[in-house]
Design a protein around this nucleic acid. Structure first.
Length: 908
RNA sequence: GGGCGAGUGGCGCAGCGGGAGCGCAGGGCCCUUACAAGGCCAAGGUCGGGGGUUCAAAUCCCUCCUCGCCCACCA
């Protein structure tokens, strides 16, 4: 009674299944955080909630391969824990993505010939909200298509009202605590985005440039020296030079310290100073000092009380301080400055020089180190406790090596520039009196100065997007309500969250900061596990990039392979290594795998014949070797999958599931079942029960990885009503019980696992002998098996029918006293000697060649083992079970060798 | 300048102290009534080079080579 099509079509089922899950409320936390009575009723081992807050994708984003991988992985964890009965919740939402969103809206305005200044701040922000309403839901929709079981009824946005309160609370708190301050510093400035960036938002690229040498003439020659030559990679900044620095111990220049030089082109007298910062071995050993355009020069300038002359404007054009170069864009200014220097004879040398150029992580424009007023967070006091929780093991990294990366950054942490000269974002809640100079950070907007009554104005800048992102694990759980009596139930129950899974490139931008702010504001770690998943590269090992055309779109993949195929194929490729070279072949195999399971289910359903899915007790008394074998394998699989998911070993678990289903359940168990099903009666009923039981349990284990197909099949399995899920829930796999690994342990049967090899050896001998001699696979052959083990005789007799079915044996005989018939092919395996009489069917020259080859292999193995077993050091030091195993192997090899030798003799 | 990761059959990758595995490609046979997106069989590797530790090394240590990534203010 098959209700399944012979070919699995993902598109036909995915949307309906997803809708059914959502309709059933399967994604909601059960019991809800505020349902204390229900929570108290949970048994202790599942009472602990399992919570993940999704790394919020940019609201401008579209699903890419990194998302596909990361969200599959999180969904696996969520689904497994949900099935295990824990109150599970996956918090979903998007990030307002300051620069990215602002860029989108500015591009839209540009099409109408407008800039943001034309429309004004208010209207621009409204346009951003409008953009979000129109396009911001795309990536959430794509998560649904993937089958992600997030709590979509409670979607968050880093700019929604409650979130804004959280950001403001944090700012004011840190401000009051003295952790947020304003200062004039050299910061990273993106002249295209016209905003400051933090240090970690700058990417460094090696660029081929030049190191130019410029002669600065001395005002008054010293000992016949009339100039000093400085080396620079950025000649245009010389317009803002205020000194030349040399190392105090540099003999070449010692006499010049304290002299003045005339700055070429600007005709300004500037001093030669001594500073340890200068490396005498680099360049000419003399450095031009431009405090407004280089962080090191700024430091030097501070030490020596030098002026700071800013020669570039916010778009990196030379400003009025640049003399006749004013108005030139920085690259043009460089050319012009070099030309003028050369014309005037100041340019003495240029050599090729590669150096790291900082570029904006959002737009790729070269960063300008620029002097300006910005807001900063003092990070050291926040970093210390955040380092400690990792040292204490309260926050664990997977793979653990990332802990060292974390420590290194945290121990060398620098202050965080949090102000951005943007409009889209959380506006800095600092208010200034227009009259008396009063200013403060305020939790609510005020218009009148509390000191003098004059109007207040708010700071123009907004906060770094990551300033709000860092609050994600607790702001999405209802913070800020004060802790203690008024703590929202949701926060108290769900915080700290369980695991955070993310890409390595935001370890500092986001993960580290969540730990710091979580400890500070929510009073505890934000999550106990940080999973750093591999970065997805393309087949050539290159970064996936839309603009470069090196990317693969997960939506296209889902269309071709189904959501399940994409998920499983990605999981197959996960390892503990840093990189993942995406291989589409794995998706093809995953789709095939889905089809394989689909058809296995078809077979089982066609043969279910009135049986319900049995309980563990119903299959525990299975007597047949094959049954005990598959049940034992299933128990082992369940144990490994259960532990593997908990240990975040996604790749290994996926491969285990694949191998079990395909090789063991389909290739062997189902094939073995066919003959027994035909027999009918109790024997057939038992096979049906085992088939159903294994399929049911396997679908549960596979569900976190392939949610759609497993749900579709599982719902077709025959079972009495009300046997799974809560009474108020529909019968769905998503909320069905996770297999009880401990109970399944009773099915482990090491003997059965070993003995099934006997059967496989006989069947394989039949198949390969036929293949070797070009006999039709269906040509019936008689089989005789000799073994010294009486138990093996019984076992093989019990499965004689199945050997006949799988191997197309005509006659089957097994015993301790079997004699080899004349003209037989002999196979020695699993301690058995398997004889296939081939009188008149084959050319024995080929058989001789084969046996010679096998003999060579066997005697090499035997020699190796013998050498090992006669080594006194080995016998003295190796573990007893290893020696035992090797002895058994040696005995087996020796008897196989003897058998092959005997066979060769007979062929003569 | 520091740090991390990778180098295993033609290709893509597992394995990470005790018998070299998987998928794909290639070869042979099979439409066997769940699945040809399938089944069966066979072939294919001195686990980057060198040294060391160990009874035992693809697996641990050292070193070198080749790739990739991260951090770092050297003009």
């Amino acid at each position: 009674m098959s209700t399944l099509d012979p070919r699995f079509d993902p598109a036909a089922i995915e949307a309906d299944i997803f809708a059914a899950w959502q309709q059933a409320g399967a994604f909601r936390q059960r019991p809800a955080a505020d349902d204390t009575a229900a929570r108290d009723a949970l048994s202790p081992e599942i009472a602990e909630p399992y919570v993940i807050t999704i790394p919020p994708p940019n609201v401008t984003g579209s699903l890419h391969m990194g998302h596909a991988l990361n969200n599959t992985l999180q969904d696996v964890l969520i689904r497994k824990n949900r099935m295990a009965g824990r109150p599970t919740r996956w918090v979903v939402g998007t990030d307002h993505a300051g620069i990215a969103t602002q860029n989108k809206v500015e591009q839209k305005l540009a099409k109408e010939g407008l800039t943001r200044f034309d429309v004004g701040r208010e209207a621009f922000i409204e346009a951003c909200w409008e953009w979000r309403r129109e396009h911001g839901g795309r990536i959430i929709q794509q998560l649904r298509a993937m089958g992600c079981s997030c709590d979509f009824d409670d979607e968050w946005f880093t700019m929604n009202e409650s979130y804004q309160r959280a950001v403001r609370e944090v700012f004011v708190d840190w401000y009051r605590a003295g952790l947020i301050y304003r200062g004039t510093r050299i910061i990273n400035w993106c002249p295209r985005c016209t905003t400051a960036l933090s240090d970690i938002e700058v990417e460094h690229q090696d660029k081929d440039g030049k190191l130019w040498s410029i002669d600065y003439p001395l005002t008054d020659p010293v000992d016949g020296i009339d100039h000093i030559t400085v080396a620079t990679t950025r000649p245009e900044t010389m317009l803002g030079d205020v000194a030349v620095a040399v190392h105090p111990d540099d003999e070449r220049y010692r006499a010049l310290i304290g002299s003045t030089v005339v700055l070429p082109l600007m005709n300004r007298a500037i001093p030669i100073i001594a500073d340890e910062y200068v490396d005498p071995a680099f360049g000419t050993g003399a450095v031009k000092i431009t405090p407004a355009h280089d962080p090191n020069d700024y430091e030097v300038g501070e030490r020596h009380g030098l002026e700071q002359i800013n020669v570039l404007d916010e778009r990196a054009f030379v400003n009025e301080n640049g003399g006749k170069f004013a108005g030139l864009e920085r690259d043009l200014a460089r050319k012009a400055v070099l030309y003028e220097l050369q014309q005037a004879g100041y340019l003495s040398d240029s050599t090729p020089h590669t150096h790291a150029v900082g570029v904006c992580y959002r737009c790729g424009t070269a960063i300008e180190p620029w002097l300006s007023d910005q807001w900063f967070v003092d990070m050291k006091p926040l970093a210390e406790p955040a380092i400690q929780v990792v040292r204490d093991g309260r926050v664990r990294f997977t793979p653990t090596r990332w802990e060292n990366v974390y420590y290194h950054w945290m121990e060398n942490i620098r202050d965080w520039c949090i102000s951005r000269q943007l409009w889209w974002g959380h506006r800095i809640p600092v208010f200034y009196c227009t009259a008396c100079g009063w200013h403060d950070a305020l939790k609510t907007d005020e218009t009148i100065c509390p000191q003098c009554g004059a109007p207040l104005v708010q700071d123009e800048d907004v906060l770094d997007t990551w300033f709000s992102s860092q609050l994600w694990p607790f702001a999405t759980l209802g913070w800020p309500a004060p802790f203690g009596a008024d703590t929202p139930a949701e926060l108290a129950f769900n915080y700290p969250t369980s695991a955070l899974s993310t890409a390595r490139d935001i370890l500092f931008l986001w993960v580290a900061r969540m730990i710091m702010s979580g400890l500070y504001f929510a009073g505890d770690i934000p999550f106990s596990d940080v999973i750093i998943h591999p970065t997805v590269f393309n087949k050539e090992g290159k970064r996936m990039s839309k603009s470069l055309g090196t990317g693969v779109d997960p939506l296209d993949l889902m269309a071709d392979y189904g959501a399940d195929g994409m998920r499983f194929g990605l999981m197959l490729q996960v390892t503990g290594v840093q990189d993942l070279r995406f291989n589409e072949e794995k998706l093809l195999k995953s789709r095939d795998f889905a089809n394989k399971i689909w058809n296995a289910a078809r077979f089982v359903l066609m043969n279910a014949a009135g049986e319900y899915v049995p309980t563990l007790a119903d299959v525990s008394d299975a007597a047949q070797l094959a049954d005990r074998w598959i049940l034992s394998r299933l128990a082992g699989l369940a144990r490994r999958v259960d532990a593997g998911i908990d240990a975040f070993e996604f790749g290994e678990v996926t491969r285990e599931l694949f191998d079990f289903a395909w090789t063991e359940y389909c290739d062997w168990y189902i094939e073995l079942a066919k003959g027994r099903l035909a027999a009918e009666g109790e024997a057939a009923a038992q096979v049906r029960r085992v088939l159903l039981f294994v399929l049911d349990t396997f679908l549960r284990l596979l569900h976190p990885f392939m949610p759609f197909i497993t749900e579709a099949i599982w719902q077709k399995l025959p079972r009495p009503a009300g046997t799974d899920a809560g009474a108020d829930l529909p019968q769905q796999l998503i909320t069905a019980a996770w297999p009880d690994v401990a109970a399944l342990g009773s099915l482990v049967d090491a003997d059965a696992e070993r003995r099934i090899q006997l059967l496989q050896a006989v069947v394989t001998a039949l198949r390969s002998t036929r293949a070797r001699y070009g006999l039709s696979p269906r040509k019936p052959l008689a089989v005789l098996v000799r073994t010294q083990d009486a138990t093996d005789v019984q076992l093989l007799q019990a499965v004689a029918d199945q050997i006949s079915t799988l191997g197309h044996a005509s006659d089957f005989a097994v015993g301790t006293d079997i004699e080899k018939p004349a003209h037989s092919a002999v196979t020695v395996a699993a301690g058995l000697e398997i004889y296939l009489p081939l009188e008149g069917l084959v050319d024995f020259a080929a058989e001789r060649a084969r046996l010679e080859k096998e003999r060579a292999q066997l005697s090499a193995d035997a020699a190796k083992l013998e050498k090992k077993l006669s080594n006194p050091g080995y016998l003295a030091k190796a573990a007893p079970e290893i020696i035992e195993k090797d002895r058994a192997r040696a005995a087996e090899t020796a008897s196989a060798l003897a058998a092959v030798d005997a066979q060769l003799t007979e062929l003569d």
